[in-house]
Amino acid sequence: MNKKSGRLLSRRQFAQRAAMLSATASFVPAEVILPEASAASPAQDTQNSPKLSPEGQLEAESRYQQILSLYGNRFDEEQKSNLRRMCAELQPSLENIRNFKLENGDVPALYLKPLVEREKKPQPSANSQPAPGSKKP
């Protein structure tokens, strides 16, 4: 945490604010929870920013405001403008991931294990016997 910040947040305060932003982002207009968002130029209007849906714009803006709420005094105006643009540029990637159809059983590659050779399901051998002493639960 930047000691120069005039508005230090505890971990709990940060978690509460982040949770509030994410929980409310889908149905509360940006200007309600983020007064600065309506006053300043929103992500959609920033030069070279991608075109976002209103929901996407809101989410990108909430990320930007999250950064400002924690570290706002570290940035000059140009950096703030670039941060807002970068938050907007991230949005399409996140939406593309979310729009990709995943089944509940699709597991994550938590730690990359390259598929060096195609893995086959083990076939039980014909004469396989349960181990001595093994019991069904």
Binding site: S22, R63, Q66, I67, Y71, L83, M86, C87, L90, L94, I97, R98, F100, L102, D106, V107, P108, A109, L110
Partner: peptide, 17 residues
């Protein structure tokens, strides 16, 4: 700073993809 705002759920979805 932008990297730190990506959610764990989105990261995990990327791993599933």
């Amino acid at each position: 700073y932008v990297n730190l705002t990506i959610s764990g759920a989105d990261y995990n979805s990327a791993l599933r993809i």
